[in-house]
Design a protein around this nucleic acid. Structure first.
Lengths: 115, 115
DNA sequence: GGATAATATAAGTGAATAGCTATATATTTA
DNA sequence: TAAATATATAGCTATTCACTTATATTATCC
């Protein structure tokens, strides 16, 4: 039952990051599978730079991995992060995001990036 | 292992609220026992109105109970909140705040309010 | 090599937020 | 009832933050 504890500041930082609807949704989607930026464009009604900036914040905090393959950049949850345990736990309380994955699949993006 | 899920918006709202260091500390302290505002004054280097405002936000979100007894207002974690499960879970990751309770005890506040 | 596509960075803007001081309200005590 | 104490509310300000558009960077394709 008792889990690892982290510095309060670190916990607060993660909660603040995931306290944003867009970022929480992103992480919840990535909990299903990795995605590239162009896929998130199908999910959010938001400019591409905005999406990239959210992903960057999550990456800078160590919560996401970033991997460039060809002209695409793939983001995935960093399961090696010391804070992964917390993130994984939090995601239990969020409804699964298959709906959003369907949006992506319904679009034609996958044909290009093969995400 | 699988817990209740809540609307993503609600989870985000809780995380945003607890993503503030002051508020996260407050809730972590209240996880030990109820406190009145004057006790928090011993913990934070912050004006009384600021402390009251943080407590109000937590109360407005349904995370805290507020109870007036005499000239003191006591705050406690609202274990009846539907989101309590999430809050309780989060607090597992935060170090216990006995240190802060010691600060309170070391001061003379308790002699007055008997918190 | 030039056009297109995917992504990132820079710079600007408006809204939200956390803090403050001053003041109001309510309760107890002398 | 006046003074003191505990807390809340109002109004202000500075900072943070999420978004935008414009532009830079990098990779692929013809």
């Amino acid at each position: 039952m008792k889990s690892t504890t982290f510095e309060l500041d670190k916990v607060a930082q993660v909660l603040k990051l995931l306290g944003d609807k867009t970022r929480l949704t992103m992480v919840a989607i990535l909990n299903h599978r990795e995605c590239c930026v162009c896929e998130f464009l199908e999910v959010f009604t938001m400019s591409q730079p905005s999406i990239s900036q959210h992903l960057r914040k999550l990456k800078d905090a160590g919560l996401l991995n970033e991997e460039k393959r060809g002209q695409w950049v793939y983001y995935s949850i960093n399961t090696e992060s010391e804070l992964y345990e917390l993130v994984e736990d939090l995601l239990q309380y969020v409804p699964d995001q298959v709906e959003q994955l369907n949006k992506i699949d319904a679009s034609k993006v996958n044909a290009r990036c093969n995400c």
